[in-house]
Design a protein around this nucleic acid. Structure first.
Lengths: 200, 200
DNA sequence: ACCTGAACACCGTTCAAGT
DNA sequence: ACCTGAACACCGTTCAAGT
């Protein structure tokens, strides 16, 4: 019946995205649903399909925000440090984000695995921006390496850091000794870089 | 109304677990549901709650099977190889499993992230068995290292391998060049080990 | 003891209908 | 153009009731 139009389409979109993150942080990432998002912003569930293609599309856009703020955070971690120290700082900061913003982070990587559907291009460009930050430091660290080698190493090391953060946050790494996650990240970055730089 | 009792409780449990994996492989990991599992084995949905605590408990048990077969597969990959070659072979085999049994693997790691509930002990022991395989090889590689160091390195390297496999399988690593995932795994294991062994 | 069938409180998504 | 409300086809889970 109604026709509210209090907000523009884009304002509504922003409200919905905000609501996704609020719900994820408040009630857990599993609690995010189209119906709850709609309720949170005071609209009927069907309205969301006028803003987004699907609930997956909605969550993906919300995750893009999280990703963007993560990239900003990593960028500031670099500062004017040497390449090695910058990479170490980035990895630590990534872990810090994973541990501190746990639920937002969970929404990001949980959802990434849903469906076999390929990730849309606009989203891929965001993740590529993250790899580029790593590539920059690797190139500064080893200027003699070819671009291909830099790309490969950036993907190897960052996937590795991601894996450590993932298993650490989901509590799958503790054993009797309870190794602190930051030690794992440090060990990984330090030794991989040492081996990589030394290699022909 | 009925009381069938054609199968023992344990037989029924095995049937249900089998059904979970069949559905995951046939229809995708997202398609696994209590109702579908019940239908697959020809029972009413409610019956499953007489066998398992919840759908999560059911899937966790099915995943334990996948994990066990993965561990067996990694064990055979070791053979009589040198520690370095054994670790490389294990990592490659892990990637191979991830790529070949994609949907089973997806069910395993998707589900691992659901809920904040801690993973039960009987499941943790399974994952620990995997780390122990890695620790064995690291201990053989560097007998002078302390046990603590071995444990830390095993978790670091295996989380890293896991991360590479995860992002590779979910297609988040390709860029223009399309780096083959096995190169990433190789680079990671080789360089990390080189750096680790060389470190004091 | 073993299992059903119906019920409850949820989902995502579509779409005719109202302004 | 913008949004609702109801409907459809799904969920997980519980539990009285039947044998």
């Amino acid at each position: 019946m109604p026709r509210r139009s209090q907000h523009s389409k884009d304002e509504l979109r922003q409200l919905a995205l905000e609501a996704v993150l609020v719900i994820a942080e408040r009630d857990g990432s599993q609690a995010v649903s189209a119906r709850k998002v709609a309720q949170e912003i005071g609209y009927a569930p069907g309205m969301l399909y006028y803003l987004f293609e699907s609930i997956d599309d909605l969550i993906l856009h919300a995750n893009a925000r999280t990703l963007a703020s993560m990239i900003r955070s990593l960028r500031t971690a670099v500062q004017r440090k040497s390449p090695q120290r910058a990479l170490l700082a980035m990895a630590r900061q990534y872990l810090e984000l994973a541990q501190h913003n746990g639920r937002r982070w969970q929404l990001l990587f949980e959802h990434a695995m849903r469906h076999d559907a390929p990730v849309p291009d606009w989203y891929r460009q965001q993740t590529d921006a993250l790899f580029r930050l790593v590539e920059e430091q690797l190139a500064a660290l080893a200027p003699e390496k070819k671009e291909k080698e830099i790309q490969l190493a950036a993907r190897a090391i960052w996937s590795a850091v991601h894996g450590v953060c993932l298993l650490a946050v989901t509590g799958k790494l503790e054993v009797g000794g309870k190794v602190p996650a930051t030690r794992l990240v440090d060990s990984l970055v330090r030794h991989y870089l040492a081996g990589w730089v030394a290699s022909a």
